[in-house]
Design a binder for these strands. Structure first.
Lengths: 321, 321
DNA sequence: GTTAACCTATCGAATTTTTCGATTCATATT
DNA sequence: AATATGAATCGAAAAATTCGATAGGTTAAC
């Protein structure tokens, strides 16, 4: 009996990964819906199995040992492979019961999700969507399994992610219907001069039309910044302000505000990303296909986020290598 | 947030692998020293997790489903990787590959690092040292994991740091060999009067002999300040200036400048600090031991940076609680 | 066609592990 | 000092795993 084979369950590895990601036992417990003492006990088992303190106290919080970071990296791969292996191979939308995590921002919540939800309630009422704000962390949320699908105008260069292009969006300018600018096509000069409400998405992101403007040497007349285009109509009505928002956002204000083409042309490519972990899971394949379908015709082209390639057998397959 | 998160432990995967190999629940149970019903129960869990019968009865025995064989192949890899991951990390310098961060200043880079590097290239060529300037932030760099080891004449009062005393250094005065002061032992009065090049280490630090002088009521005749003792010889040669530097720094100028004992006695304790984060990591233990060894005999005394401390049972142990 | 041999599945009880709430302990902050 | 934060620990409760015994099902032998 020289060696005792270490034993752990995958849930323990998930806990380890989460503690590492959050830097806190208590927050991990909260996220998992468990008591803090439970996480503490799980960590004790992990410490035993790996014969390492894993986390040591430092200052306010905890800091992972060097070995811990190695382990988390490896364990992450093990978990992904296991979850891929255990992913359901077949499912019936009508009876399947599971939760799928989607990470996206306001734009996708407004333009894509409502249609998805409608279909889901009819055809797959057992699929529960857990939508979280991606802000600028969408990629990390995917890799940490905090979400299964990432939607948005995101660019991921690295290998290890699958991508499907959904559609391209462009900008329109919206304003009070009384605004003189709403009466005629908007020219560039008027656009640049007009007092604008700029959406800054809570910092860390600059809308593409702003980048395009700047590249062309213009600077908008920023009268106000807000973090989200939500209820922009309420802001604009009765003012001389204009706002430049994606076309589909503008459509949600239909009737309330006037919209005209934006003289600065900029495209927003909206993509869907996922990882190998859910790549072969039947419900995920189904949902991704649904998302692509409701996103419209443009969704026919598709690719891997990485370079390579395969083959497609479904109506709206995720990927062709 | 994936599906009904499947959970299994690695022991279950081992059982699966064994059953697959032996083609029998009972023999697997026997091999594992378990009851047959236990294996049956484990298989029930596996069947649930993978949503597949895995084994179906045929004739005398059982036969694996195709999915089962896939799973066994994958699970075998998962098990191998897990066991590799959980295997006690015995550190072999010759093959280890990792980076270790050291925070120190010019003095330690000149006196300690060259010897370390020499040993490392022979015995542990896979260890990459990342040396950063500690200036006066060494402690913060440690706690922020910007470095793993801090070397220098540092005093850390707080708890949470490990310390090992390396050696004590003293000062000598160096000057042009032609300097009259170089011909006889230097007396205090001449020392105080002599025009000095003062090393200010880029502000924020005052050399200990300066503190000692001031305490004794003397003030040096400062002719010049420089941030580092590097190439001090080039500055001194052909002048009447003197400089007071740690003995081992002076030795790097050997032959170029004359050096005499400094009449102000001040000791510089050179210590090594680290944190719990790397305390139990085999490569770090090994390197710390190496640093202590090449730092010489004086390294035998050792303590914790915190209050408690004990004696030492190993040749050059970091610490024993 | 019955029986014997050989498996796996299942049941109830015993055991072990996991979880929880409360408390304690350690550290940092006021 | 006092307070706040967060991990460790304790005892009790809940859940899971394990075991022995037995049931159910298939094959081979008579």
């Amino acid at each position: 009996m020289p060696f005792e084979l270490p034993n752990l369950d995958f849930a323990a590895l998930r806990t380890l990964r989460l503690v590492h990601a959050l830097g806190s036992f208590s927050r991990a417990a909260e996220t998992l819906g468990l008591a803090q003492s439970t996480v503490s006990y799980t960590l004790a088992r992990l410490r035993e199995a790996f014969d390492d303190p894993l986390f040591v106290r430092q200052g306010q919080g905890i800091v992972p040992t060097t070995r811990c970071s190695e382990i988390v990296a490896q364990a992450g791969e093990l978990l992904d492979r296991f979850e891929e292996l255990a992913a359901p191979r077949d499912f019936e939308p009508a009876v399947a019961s599971l939760e799928i995590g989607i990470s996206c921002n306001y734009y996708e919540r407004v333009t894509i999700l409502p249609q998805i939800v409608r279909v889901l309630r009819c055809e797959a009422p057992g699929i529960r969507l857990k939508v979280i704000s991606s802000t600028v962390q969408g990629k990390g949320q995917l890799t940490r399994s905090q979400s299964d699908i990432l939607l948005g105008a995101v660019q991921i260069q690295e290998a290890g992610y699958f991508r499907r292009s959904l559609f391209k969006e462009d900008y329109v300018c919206i304003m009070d219907p009384q605004n003189p600018l709403a009466q005629v096509p908007l020219d560039l000069e008027s656009f640049v001069r007009a007092p604008q409400v700029i959406v800054n998405y809570g910092d860390g992101y600059r809308a593409r039309f702003l980048v395009a403007m700047e590249t062309a040497g213009y600077r908008p007349n920023t009268a106000m910044e807000v973090p989200s285009p939500a209820s922009m109509d309420r802001i604009l009505l009765g003012t001389d302000l204009i706002a430049t928002v994606p076309r589909r956002i503008a459509q949600t204000f239909r009737g309330e505000v006037a919209s005209v083409a934006c003289p600065v042309s900029a495209e927003i490519p909206i993509d869907m990303f996922w990882t190998a972990r859910t790549h072969s899971s039947a419900p995920h394949v189904w949902l991704r296909s649904l998302i692509a379908t409701v996103s419209g015709r443009e969704a026919e082209s598709l690719q891997d986020a990485r370079s390579s390639e395969t083959e497609d057998t479904h109506a709206f397959p995720d990927q062709s290598f």
